[in-house]
Structure formats: C-alpha cells, structure tokens
C-alpha cells in the first residue's frame, strides 16, 4: 500500500465567500479602512487649523460637501460595526473570575457599551453639540 496524499488547493482570496461567518470577519476587518480614512481626515483638519482661520473655514466648507457627507455616513456605519464587534469580543480576551464563577460575557460587554454611551454623551455635551 503506497501513500499518495492529495492536497486540496485553497482559493487565494475567494475563501471568505464559503460561509457568512467569513464575510462578517472580512466586513469587520474592512472597518479599518474607514476608520483610518477618517483619522486622516482629522489630520487634514489639524493641518487647516494650524494654517489660520481662512484655511480652517475651507476645511469646514469641504466637510459640508456631498462627498464628505456620504463618507461620514458610511464611516459612521463601519465604525459602529467595529465598536460592536470589539465590545462583543472583549470578554473572550479578558475573562474575569470572581470566586469560582466567571463574570458572564454579557456583563463585561454591557459595561463597555454603557461606558461607550456615557463617554459619547459627555463628548457631545463638552463639544457643545446640543
């Protein structure tokens, strides 16, 4: 009896269409593109701020453009997906054992969501959004 194992090829990048869970994983990874682009937008804002009121106003005017608004809506959606997936996975990475039992995942995630909501509210208030 001779061995002749057959090795199946992995499709280089189409593997994530095999199951919804891989598509969700890819979506999660893709959030980084929007978060990164938004951060660069903020850096551009810093640049305009450092150049004086006229440049800064130019930046604000650009913010009001349709392209910017579309980008903001998309970026907001993707950043929410990043936050939700991150907070849901945090309990797996940082389990907390109290006595014999582990604190339930939902409590740890829930605490993150609560903190997130509170922080967002505080930022909005301090920035004078209301």
């Amino acid at each position: 009896m001779s061995r002749n194992p057959y090795v199946r090829e992995i499709p280089k990048f189409r593997w994530f269409f095999r199951h919804p869970r891989y598509l969700r994983y890819m979506a999660r990874e893709f959030t980084c593109i929007f978060i990164g682009a938004y951060t660069l937008l903020l850096v551009a804002g810093l640049s305009s701020l450092s150049q004086g009121p006229a440049a800064y106003q130019g930046f604000l005017d650009w913010l009001a453009s349709p392209a910017s608004i579309v980008f903001h809506v998309l970026a907001f959606g993707f950043s929410l997906y990043h936050s939700v997936t991150w907070f849901n996975l945090t309990p797996k990475a940082l389990p907390v054992q109290r006595g014999e039992e582990f604190v339930p995942d939902s409590v740890i995630s829930g605490a993150h969501y609560a903190g997130w909501g509170l922080l967002s509210l505080v930022v909005l208030v301090l920035a004078g959004a209301f």
Binding site: H19, R21, Y22, Y25, E29, L89, K92
Partner: peptide
Amino acid sequence: SFTGACSEVCPEHVD
C-alpha cells in the same frame, strides 16, 4: 487573526 470560526464550529464549546 481572531476570525473566531474555530469557536463557532467546536462541538465541545471549548472556545
């Protein structure tokens, strides 16, 4: 890369 597929398919809930 924390895909998480391993835990989803584990029949013994090892996570």
